[in-house]
Deep mutational scan, measured.
Amino acid sequence: GTEIELESKNGQREHYTATSEDEARKIIEKAVRRGIKRIELRGASEQLIRDMQEIAKQIGLQYRTDGSL
């Protein structure tokens, strides 16, 4: 699965493990709508990382991946 670590603007951290790319995408989209400061992805697919970079650029988000592409 993909591990997703979120940090909201007030510094609250949340951790999710998505079993599918679809689920990961839903978690990320929800977080973005809620207003999130930072997202870290571990074990994400190349496609998901590309999507994440696109989203991050659009809304000026900090993100990090573990680089295991």
Rank of each mutant, 00 (worst) to 15 (best):
E54V: 09
E5F: 14
M52V: 15
Y63A: 13
A44D: 01
K26A: 12
A31H: 05
N10F: 09
E23V: 07
Q62N: 06
I39D: 00
R50P: 00
E23K: 03
I55M: 10
L69R: 02
A31Q: 03
R50Y: 07
E5Q: 09
T17D: 05
S45T: 07
Q58L: 12
Q53K: 11
G67W: 02
A44S: 02
K37P: 03
S8C: 13
K57V: 06
H15G: 03
E29V: 09
A24E: 00
I59D: 04
S20H: 05
G35M: 05
Q58N: 07
S45Q: 02
E5L: 14
H15Y: 14
T65W: 06
R13I: 11
I39A: 01
I49L: 11
A18V: 12
G43T: 04
L6R: 00
R33V: 11
T17C: 13
I28L: 12
I39V: 06
R34T: 10
G67C: 15
I27Y: 11
Q12A: 07
L69P: 08
Y16V: 04
R34Y: 05
E40S: 14
K26P: 01
S8L: 15
K26S: 12
I27G: 00
D66F: 03
N10I: 05
R42V: 06
L69N: 06
E21D: 14
G60Q: 06
T65I: 12
I49Q: 11
K9L: 14
G11V: 01
S8G: 10
E46G: 05
D51V: 15
G1W: 14
Q62D: 15
G43D: 04
K26H: 09
K9H: 12
G1C: 14
R42F: 10
L61W: 10
T2M: 12
M52P: 00
L61Y: 10
M52T: 08
E21T: 07
D51P: 00
S20C: 04
G35S: 04
A56K: 02
E21C: 06
S20V: 02
K37N: 08
E3F: 13
Y63V: 15
T65L: 05
L48R: 00
E5S: 12
V32P: 00
T2P: 08
I28Y: 02
L61V: 06
R38D: 01
L6D: 01
L6Y: 08
K37Q: 09
Q58G: 06
R50Q: 07
E23F: 05
R13Y: 09
K26Y: 11
E7A: 04
E23N: 04
L6C: 06
E46F: 06
R25F: 07
K26W: 11
H15T: 12
K26V: 11
A24Q: 00
E21H: 05
K26G: 09
T65E: 15
R38A: 07
Q62P: 04
T17K: 11
R25C: 04
L61G: 04
I59W: 15
E3M: 08
D66W: 02
I36R: 01
T17W: 12
A18N: 10
A24L: 07
Q62R: 13
A44M: 03
A24K: 00
S8H: 14
L41Y: 02
D22L: 08
E54I: 11
T17L: 13
D22F: 10
I55H: 03
R33A: 12
G60N: 08
E14G: 03
T2D: 01
G60E: 10
E29T: 09
H15L: 15
E54C: 09
T19M: 12
Q53R: 09
L48A: 01
R33Q: 13
Q12R: 12
E7M: 09
K9M: 13
I4E: 00
Q47R: 09
Y63G: 08
I59Y: 15
R34A: 13
Y16C: 04
G60D: 09
A56T: 04
Q47W: 05
D22T: 08
L6I: 15
A24Y: 02
E54P: 02
I28D: 00
D22W: 12
N10E: 11
Q12L: 11
S8P: 04
K30F: 14
L69Y: 13
Q58M: 09
I36M: 10
A44H: 02
L69E: 08
R64V: 14
L41E: 00
E3N: 08
E23A: 07
S45G: 05
E29Y: 14
R13G: 02
G60S: 05
T65P: 14
K30Y: 14
E29I: 09
A31D: 00
A56C: 11
S68C: 15
K37C: 14
G60K: 05
R50N: 07
Q58D: 07
A44E: 01
E3Y: 14
N10C: 13
E21W: 07
I27S: 01
V32D: 00
R25N: 01
R25D: 00
Y63L: 15
I55Q: 02
A24D: 00
A56P: 01
R64T: 14
L48F: 07
E7D: 03
H15K: 12
S68N: 07
R38Q: 05
R13F: 11
I55K: 03
R25V: 04
D22R: 08
Y16P: 00
E7V: 13
Q58E: 11
S68H: 07
I4W: 01
K26N: 09
Q53V: 14
R64F: 15
R33G: 08
G11L: 02
E40K: 14
S45W: 03
Q62S: 07
V32Y: 07
E21Q: 06
G1I: 14
I39P: 00
E5I: 14
R42D: 02
S45F: 03
E7G: 03
G35Q: 04
V32R: 02
T17Y: 12
A24W: 03
L6G: 01
L41W: 02
S8R: 11
S68T: 10
E29G: 07
K37A: 10
G43C: 11
A56R: 03
E23T: 04
E14Q: 09
G60V: 04
I28G: 00
V32H: 02
D66N: 05
L61K: 04
V32A: 07
K37E: 06
K57Y: 07
G60P: 04
T17R: 12
I55P: 00
I36P: 02
R34P: 04
Q12V: 10
G11M: 02
Y16I: 05
D51L: 14
L48V: 03
E14W: 13
A24H: 00
I39H: 00
I55T: 03
Y63N: 09
R34E: 11
R38E: 03
E5A: 10
T17S: 11
Q47I: 07
E46R: 08
I49S: 07
L6K: 01
V32M: 15
I49K: 07
R64L: 15
I28M: 06
Q53H: 12
A18K: 03
S45R: 02
D66E: 07
T19R: 14
T2V: 13
I59R: 13
L61T: 03
M52R: 00
A44C: 07
I55A: 03
G1E: 11
H15D: 01
I36L: 11
S20G: 05
E7N: 03
H15C: 13
A31W: 08
R38N: 04
G67N: 07
I39L: 12
I59V: 14
E21K: 02
Y63Q: 10
S20A: 04
I39C: 03
T65C: 15
K30I: 11
H15S: 10
V32L: 15
L61N: 04
I59S: 15
K57Q: 08
